[in-house]
Design a protein around this nucleic acid. Sequence first.
DNA 1: CGAATCTCAGGCGAACTGATATGC
DNA 2: CGCATATCAGTTGGCCTGAGATTC
Lengths: 160, 160
Amino acid sequence: MSSGHEIAMALRAAYLTMHRQSQAHLTKHRVTADQFVVLSLLTERDGITQQEIVRRASSDPNTMRSMLVLLEHRGLVARKRHPTDGRARHVTLTPAGLQAYEDLWESISPLQERLLALFDPFEAKTLVELLGRISGALARPLKRSSGISDQRSDRVHEEG
Amino acid sequence: MSSGHEIAMALRAAYLTMHRQSQAHLTKHRVTADQFVVLSLLTERDGITQQEIVRRASSDPNTMRSMLVLLEHRGLVARKRHPTDGRARHVTLTPAGLQAYEDLWESISPLQERLLALFDPFEAKTLVELLGRISGALARPLKRSSGISDQRSDRVHEEG
DNA sequence: CGAATCTCAGGCGAACTGATATGC
DNA sequence: CGCATATCAGTTGGCCTGAGATTC
């Protein structure tokens, strides 16, 4: 029991199901689940580089750029030059973006409560820990990110 | 700690990381991770309807049709009329499809072992159970599937 | 110089909407 | 008839490859 394949299929089913539900809750705001993720990352730490967003969102530079350009056109984020590194972009949430995020949060919070209600506190903690093990161990060095450290550097744990 | 959002982000990161790795391992065979999932479902139970595949793959009819048409053009699956229901399609794996699946399995098994090695047996079982709770509880009645019962019916649990 | 960050062009698989044909 | 299954047309967002510009 519990082969690697079984874990993979369970992970896939859980993610796709949740993702569909998220999409459904957000679609009336004309925002996708992935765009919501980007906005939420910016509320957690505003003013970071695109590369940093790429890492936190488990995405890639090209995809993230087009997403951010789209969000910029809607006035939800601002993309300025990084003050000390001319190569990088300093991405921030606009007031409209923050407002949009709060509206989106209201739309999606019933789903998140429903998700949380499936577990007792210990189970929830366990689940997050086990999932973190997967993303931690299987994460690839996409572009060998060394990090600019916008405000403070968070160590990139290179797996041995 | 462990809010609904935190669970969702951990789930997302774990899935996307695993999905990228799977893609990378399969790309040399010109098969996507989702196509591999379809093939693996057919090896578990061959000769089922498209609707059944849709449910098991957590997908939708339109997407699944185009995937199956693609796999049919490559000679990996066959799509015939269902013997007792003229509306349905009876999807089977061709010999070439079975061979392809075995090759794909070899390519991807190192990743699956790596995935499995992250957990002790109890953790693996726990993880699968917790993930199953998510897909079970959040699954939507996409089209209110009643099931044709290809070989035996598996009860569709309508949530109350 | 090399390396990092981002930009740009283009292609592709998957998900979706909405409408339609056909058989139960 | 209603309903279920599958099909078809078309759109979109996200992921990818590969190339290039700019800056460190």
